[in-house]
Amino acid sequence: MICAIGLLGLVLLMVILIWQAAGPSIKAFGFSFFFTREWDPVHGRFGALPYIYGTLVSTLLALLLAGPVSLGAAVYVAEFAPRKIKNILGFMIDLLAAVPGIIFGLWGNFVLSPWLAGSLEPRLEHYFGFLPLFRGPATGVGMLAAGIILAIMISPLITAVSREVLEIVPASQREAMIALGATPWEVVRRAVLPYARTGIVGAFTLGLGRAIGETMALTMVIGNRPQISASLFAPAYTMTSVIVNEFTEAVEPLHLAALIHIALVLFLVTLLVNTVARLMIYLMNRRVKKWTV
């Protein structure tokens, strides 16, 4: 009881303290903090736009790459995999989800980036160079690397949660479809997926929250330059990375407050994203209960 209430108090205290610590920056910049490109510790002018942009674009890229793969994998494990290998697959995906971000960052930094710079990026530029997305010097560190690493990191999470969601779809829904003479894929496509839609969206939203908050892997591959560029090859910066990189070096109180301000925004955004995700999974659960009484 006390422990449970303590948990509530903890979250409240977190919001209050972080809000307080960000106070000077909130007072100095207000809403313009979100729309200003400038980040100048020397003159005490701070705007978070490049970081917000970096976080948003890398997250979006990661979801685009991870989404189809994760959904496919979840469907396979939940619906098609033979019973024997089902558990092994599930366990391996759990393992993948437990590998820490720093490991992916290390791999991204020493293996993925050189490969991108040496082979993938030049090819992309050769074939798709007419798009501004794929133009520019192929350095290997930048938005593309960040997106790929993030995708690798969040896909086990999305797969695991989606799989759980698919498995609570009542058997009667599948049987009804089979009885109509549907092929296994049609059962999935027309009965299981529509039924689990809300839950799957919830799983993706959880992945989104994880991607927004991921720090180490990104810091090691995104290039850490606060700029907004149309090219995926160009270095960028994310909200989490700038906090980690500059926190220990920030001597000016306003600089520190601006960094904590970014953290506050992150906190509130992930709070919102997770609330939405949990709500969707909850709604799906309730619907299952309603239909299986």
């Binding site: 972080i18 908050g213 989490t240 953290a263 992930t270 997770n274 609330t275």
Partner: peptide, 17 residues
Amino acid sequence: FTADVLSGVPSITAGIF
């Protein structure tokens, strides 16, 4: 609900807190 949401909040906020 709090525990659920807190588990999705990035670890960076715990550090700053």
